Simulated scan of single mutants.
Amino acid sequence: MAGAASAPSLLAPSIVRAQSFPARPISLVVPYPAGGPTDAIARFVAQEMSSSIGQNVLVDNRAGASGAVGTRAVAHGAADGYTIIFGNNQTHGNNMFLLKEPGYDAVKDFAPLCGVGAFEHAFVVRNDLPAKTIAELVALAKADPGKLNYGSTGVGSGSHLAMELFMQRTGIKMTHVPFRGAAPLVQEIVGGRIDIANSTLPSVLEQINAGSMRALALASPERNPRAKDIPTLREQGVSNADADSWAAFFAPAATPAPILGQLSKAVMAAIAKPAITESILKLGFTLKVRDPDAFKPYHLQEIATWKQIIADAGVKPE
């Protein structure tokens, strides 16, 4: 009887927190520099959430260590719902196998709020590179192994591993040049200092359309409606090299369930707003919204898949 009598008092603090949440602004951590497509999507969602929940949702860019700096901070921060993160297959997947000490567990330390979809990868090259097709690029790389360089958004990022997968499938060798996010990578390609990148389509679509870099292929099963003129790798004879980078919102795992539910609903409602949906799609991002129950098995499967690709590529933790 004593135990039964005490049960409501034990549950009361959690219920009270949930009922009064949010009572102050929420920090949405983006573990990359401002200006890239990940940052843009986070800001679209944050703006809409601010209107719907009655508190400001403030984007906090914390770049560094392939996204691990910001992700680690959220993992070890207060689990009260006031700090969440917009992560991806790098921060909440590949870092577990590519960093010797990431400082967090991508599964145990986080609770998913919403899977958003995926960044398709596009092969882009500097305008004066003498290759206009994937076949010509492969021939150029094979003529002088290691001479061509390729940029990525960091060791273990989707752009890095997608290129490792491509090199495996085509038997070529290029030199890796990692950057701290999409914005500096794009600047270097436009400036002609990087030869090629297998970059997320949203991070380069504007530059492709403006003619400041050229796109050779999409590493996806189908063409993107926002970039219909870009052929896929499969169309150009390269199979088993598709690579999409998913993105999702997370909170610390110990966040009370009622608050997780509120946050999840708020994020999904924001994305479902027609204006937000259209803004995200204009970036070239592919929307595929998953609630927490649907995202969890997908998350685990993606981790297993890319863990194997990392092993096959021989990429060592740094």
Score class of each variant (00 low, 15 high):
R169W: 12
I172K: 06
K173P: 01
K173F: 09
K173N: 11
M174I: 07
M174P: 00
T175N: 08
F179E: 14
R180F: 05
G181V: 00
G181K: 05
A182I: 05
A183N: 08
A183Y: 09
P184A: 04
P184N: 05
P184S: 09
L185H: 02
V186Y: 04
V186Q: 10
V186A: 10
V186T: 12
E188W: 09
E188G: 02
E188D: 15
E188H: 12
I189A: 04
V190R: 15
G192F: 15
G192I: 15
R193G: 00
R193F: 03
I194P: 05
I194E: 00
I194S: 02
D195F: 04
D195G: 04
S199Y: 11
T200S: 15
L201D: 01
S203E: 09
V204C: 15
V204K: 08
L205T: 00
E206K: 14
E206S: 12
Q207L: 12
Q207S: 10
Q207H: 09
I208P: 08
N209S: 07
N209L: 06
N209Y: 06
G211A: 10
G211P: 08
S212W: 00
S212T: 14
S212I: 01
M213N: 01
R214D: 12
A215Q: 03
A215W: 00
A215D: 06
L216R: 13
L216M: 07
A217V: 09
L218M: 07
A219P: 06
S220I: 02
P221A: 07
E222N: 08
R223V: 10
R223W: 08
N224C: 14
P225K: 02
P225T: 03
A227C: 11
A227V: 01
D229L: 03
I230W: 01
P231N: 06
L233W: 00
R234C: 04
Q236V: 14
Q236H: 11
G237E: 11
V238M: 01
V238C: 04
V238D: 01
S239P: 00
S239M: 10
N240A: 15
D242W: 03
A243N: 14
D244M: 06
A247E: 09
A247V: 15
A247D: 12
F249D: 12
F250P: 10
A251N: 00
P252R: 13
A253E: 06
A253K: 09
A254N: 11
T255L: 13
P256C: 14
P258V: 11
I259W: 08
I259S: 07
I259H: 05
L260G: 01
L260E: 02
G261Q: 11
Q262T: 03
L263C: 11
S264R: 13
A266Q: 14
A269E: 14
A269C: 04
A270I: 08
P274E: 06
P274L: 13
P274C: 14
A275R: 07
A275V: 15
T277H: 10
T277D: 15
S279G: 05
L281K: 05
L281P: 04
